[in-house]
Simulated scan of single mutants.
Amino acid sequence: MTGPKDLDPSSRRIMIGEELRHARERAGLTQQALGEPLFVSGSYVGQMEAGTRRILPDMARRLDETLGTGGFFVRHCVKANRSKHPEQFAEAAEAEVLATSIMEYGAMLIPGLLQTPDYARAVFLDYQPTAPDEAIDKLLTARIERARLLDNPTTPLLWVVLDEAALRRPVGGPSVMTANLCHIADLMRRRRAVVQVLPFSTGGHASLHGSLKLMYFDDAPPLTLIEAPATGRLLDDPATVARHQLSYDLLRANALTPKQSLALITSVAEDYDHEDHEPRA
């Protein structure tokens, strides 16, 4: 199967995933049965078929051997795995496009889907202070394209818990923070995102280890993202996903209501705006 030349990687993965499903069914195998010789779970096979997981070169080789597909998956996995995103985050960013709901806890930073370009640029520069402008611009372009996910008025459902630390840390300076918090407030008023703030007064909570992200799909098992500096890993283990969902539910239970959160976000934005317009000594 050869897709159109201008097919983007995510769409190509969906088409290859459909071919994988057809090949598996022709072989008379369930997802679980195919997963056994591949040393992965049946849900992992389901995610490859849905296009939410990449088919990496070694996996492509094993698929061709197991299903007798004559090198089809090896030939097509390279183009399907091309991404504009950093390698450690590419799979997660591409899964976002297919998610029906995304639940995220931002511990120290405003999550990427809620970032303005100026805020994102400041984050990239802080993380890579010696990177050339071309590299920063490439990252920024990919981040802006990710945020276009919210151009759809209803899908995905985005529910974010923001730690108060993310509001108070002046990434990029007062004017950048003012604009980003106003952007979040606008998304909330338009009912495009549900945002709750976890206030400092909460004290300890269920995700003191750091940020948290869960993604849910119509036709594939849910995923949770484990992130660390320069690395990221998607997990589909049901026990791990359930544990992270419980942590997220506890965060929501301890956070301010959306109405209270909107009031706090607006107040902090006004504080930054006032700071930005104070006379300089």
Rank of each mutant, 00 (worst) to 15 (best):
Arg243Val: 08
Ser211His: 02
Asp137Arg: 01
Gly210Ile: 12
Gly173Thr: 05
Asp219Lys: 05
Asp133Phe: 02
Asn152Gln: 14
Leu225Val: 02
Met177Val: 12
Glu227Ala: 12
Pro132Ile: 00
Thr130Ile: 03
Asn180Glu: 05
Tyr248Ser: 09
Val194Leu: 15
Asp186Trp: 02
Pro170Lys: 01
Arg121Cys: 03
Ser175Gly: 12
Thr202Trp: 06
Ala135Gly: 15
Pro229Trp: 02
Arg121Leu: 06
Cys182Asp: 11
Asp236Ile: 03
Asp133Met: 05
Gly232Trp: 04
Leu139Arg: 08
Phe200Met: 04
Ser247Asp: 13
Leu198Ser: 06
Pro170Ile: 00
Ala179Cys: 04
His183Gly: 13
Ile184Val: 11
Val195Pro: 11
Thr141Asn: 09
Leu140Pro: 13
Asp237Asn: 08
Ala122Tyr: 07
Thr202Gly: 09
Val160Asn: 12
Lys213Cys: 12
Asp186Ala: 04
Glu164Lys: 10
Glu227Asp: 14
Leu235Val: 05
Arg148Trp: 10
Ala206Phe: 09
His183Asn: 12
Thr155Tyr: 05
Gly172Lys: 01
Val195Ala: 15
Val171Pro: 07
Thr130Ala: 14
Ala220Cys: 06
Arg146Lys: 09
Ala142Thr: 01
Thr202Asp: 15
Pro238Glu: 03
Asp186Tyr: 07
Ser201Asn: 12
Leu158Val: 10
Leu162Tyr: 13
Ala242Phe: 04
Gly232Phe: 01
Asp218Val: 05
Ala239His: 09
Gly172Ala: 02
Tyr127Ile: 15
Leu140Trp: 06
Ser175Leu: 07
Arg168Pro: 08
Met215Asn: 15
Ala206Cys: 12
Ile184Cys: 10
Thr130Trp: 06
Pro129Ile: 01
Thr231Tyr: 10
Leu225Ser: 09
Val171Ala: 06
Val195Leu: 14
Leu187Ile: 02
Leu235Ala: 10
Ser207Asn: 12
Ala193Asn: 07
Pro222Leu: 00
Arg190Asn: 12
Thr224Ala: 14
Ala179Met: 10
Pro229Asp: 05
Ile184Arg: 07
Asp163Phe: 04
Leu157Trp: 15
Val123Gly: 04
Val197Thr: 02
Asn180Tyr: 04
Tyr127Asp: 09
Gly173Trp: 11
Leu235Phe: 04
Ala193Met: 03
Gln128Ser: 15
Asp237Pro: 04
Leu208Arg: 11
Arg121Glu: 15
Asp237Lys: 01
Leu212Gly: 04
Gly232Arg: 00
Tyr127His: 15
Ala165Ile: 02
Gly172His: 08
Phe124Val: 07
Pro129Gly: 02
Thr224Ile: 11
Ala230Cys: 11
Ala122Cys: 08
Thr178Ser: 14
Lys138Arg: 08
